[in-house]
Design a binder for these strands. Structure first.
Lengths: 192, 192
DNA sequence: GTCTATAAAATGATAGAC
DNA sequence: GTCTATCATTTTATAGAC
């Protein structure tokens, strides 16, 4: 532990700044100039850290994509349908609360898809996976699909909503899990 | 009746094309060149109909904004809270189903806010209004606010979801009202 | 109402100095 | 690791012919 309180390196600050600007103006609405200005450096400095704008977008999305990926894999392992839904909902809400605007961006910004299209995993696949798990695999009925879409996009967007920015993590987590369970028809949990 | 089957005029086709491209690529991700190409005309022709890109965005959003405005005003007239919520939910779902992608755009695209910021009504005001009506005016509790946000953004996004594009209007309307009532704690309606 | 042509600015991106 | 300078392309937008 040679350095205490290390100032976040430029790459880290860059990604945090990019995420904030993406959530305010959208990916396509955010230029490298805006990111550079916000960081107090020039565009060329930004290009030292990332070869293209698409790389920045991918790097911003990466933690969310990775965690979402793991979550879907883990949730699918449960034998019972109810257990799968519980695991998925708890994990998804946890992800939303920890990343707030990022998961909302997945649900709403076409620029994310465009950037991820070139890399291995698009975001559209996850939406399908989430719906499949809660709505059931073979030809889920319309009600189940609508419910799943409303629940997960609603929860994701709520995490990024400015109106809820001041709500603390633990409270938001409980509220979102509560509303999710009601929607997905999961029984109320005993308060332990 | 001099002309039967009148071909939609350019202005109308332009707005329909713009809405489709906006929903696919976002407002900022859609250039006038893309709109012109899709219409089979030049950019200059597009500029004959609208002075700026912002004007196109406003014109695309206008019907939704106007109807949403009327809905909020009408819903607020009811004496009982339950009646206000019912009116708002029914009207909102109707709007979502008739416009599909447009209301989703309101919920998700920062480019819409940017274009509407200059004109009289931003879209942020509506979100507040919807939440106030269902969550109650004076300092609504967190649970009510979270529920309202999840419900309305979830319903709006579901209307624009490609996964539900093939669902017919009447079915989608029933499903969305159903999920909305469950979320907002409204009693199940008798099937009449 | 649509076209060609063009302007002015911004964008993503690179080369090379420090 | 950041800078200045520059480039090619694209973008929004206008002028004027048909």
């Amino acid at each position: 532990m040679t350095t205490v309180e290390p100032v976040a390196d430029t790459r880290t600050r860059l990604l945090a700044t990019a995420l904030r600007l993406f959530s305010e103006h959208g990916v396509e609405g955010t230029s490298l100039q805006m990111i550079a200005d916000e960081l107090g450096v020039t565009k060329a400095a930004v290009y030292y850290h990332f070869k293209t704008k698409s790389e920045i977008t991918e790097a911003v999305a990466e933690p969310g994509i990775r965690e979402l990926d793991e979550l879907v894999v883990e949730a699918a392992k449960h034998r019972r349908h109810g257990a799968r839904v519980d695991h998925l909902l708890d994990g998804f809400v946890d992800l939303v609360v920890r990343h707030r605007v990022l998961v909302a961006l997945f649900s709403s910004d076409p620029g994310i898809d465009a950037a991820l299209a070139k890399s291995r995993h698009g975001v559209e696949g996850f939406k399908q996976a989430l719906i499949s798990i809660v709505a059931g695999e073979p030809e889920p009925d319309v009600t189940a699909r609508v419910t799943a879409i409303v629940a997960f996009t609603g929860i994701a967007m709520a995490g990024g909503a400015p109106d809820l920015a001041e709500v603390d993590d633990e409270t938001l987590r409980q509220e979102l899990v509560g509303v999710g369970r009601r929607l997905l028809g999961r029984p109320r949990r005993r308060v332990c």
